[in-house]
Write a protein that binds this DNA or RNA. Sequence first.
RNA 1: GUGUACUGAUUCUCCAC
Length: 321
Amino acid sequence: LVAWTIMITAFADTDDADGAQEFFDRMPQRDFVCWNAMAAARTHSGQMQLAKMLFDKMPERDVVSWTLLVVGNAEKGLVELAEAAFSRMPLRSVVSWNVMVQAYAQNGYLETARFTFDSMPMRTNISWNLLVAAYADAGQVQQARFLFDAVPDKDPVAWATMVAGYAQNGYLEEAQEVFEVIPQKTVVAWSSLIAAFAHAAKVESARRVFDLLPGRNLYTWNSMLSAYSQNGYGTQAVELFRQMVQEGGTMPDPIAFMSLLTACNHVGLVELSWEQFVSMRNDFGIDPRQGHYRCMIDVLARSGRLVEAEELMATMPFAPD
RNA sequence: GUGUACUGAUUCUCCAC
């Protein structure tokens, strides 16, 4: 039973809810944990109607089942339904409360989120961290900082969240100040610092941070790549991309290619753009998404190659916008 | 004592200016 549930979760982690369902259907017997795992798989792939069906069919529902219902509705923007599920729950764990705070915050009800946070019977680090992040996402950096200062035992996520909050809102100095005093600097904090410099157009500094940080990963490569591309350093971006693949042994993702194409675009390197665009699928097996097409069409059109631009637009597997 | 729910970093989009 445990092994089956692990399989279901593994499929869910790769966004394959149907694969999870196949396992679920073949299970000799089921307990509420595997029902929940299956409901979570549907919930996280956005299939709320199926998730709700599972919820209704469950022989028994525990706090996890109910919390999943809150999450699912919240992610679909259905705050009232999330709220209804939350109030109908027979029992609420701290996770349920966290989820409800998040539900309000992510749907624009920051005040209600705060009120709910204040009424929580107990809090974890996650409760604090998610609200700090919510304030920062809403551009309320001072509020974020104020709450951050009140966090009792700041974990590495809290610190990274605050640096990221400053970075995203263009507060370079504050981001640096917080970063300096972080007890355990995670790679997330490092990459946020790169972003902070990048948004302030301090590309050299961003690069210095990139060279200093321990443990490069896809995010740090991408952060540096976008630092170059957003500031018009086309050739550096291309070179960094090459290093990422060849020396870093990192598999680029669609985001890396967005930065790369944007970088080529800024420099007007049409041929190079096209090369990368083709290479995406041929060498890396990544199907270009709408953003990649848009970027590529833009490069072509700007350089006067209107026929090719039109052709690409006509053959792309998306509706033109 | 094992399996299921919640938080942080990179591009674009959206929104605002």
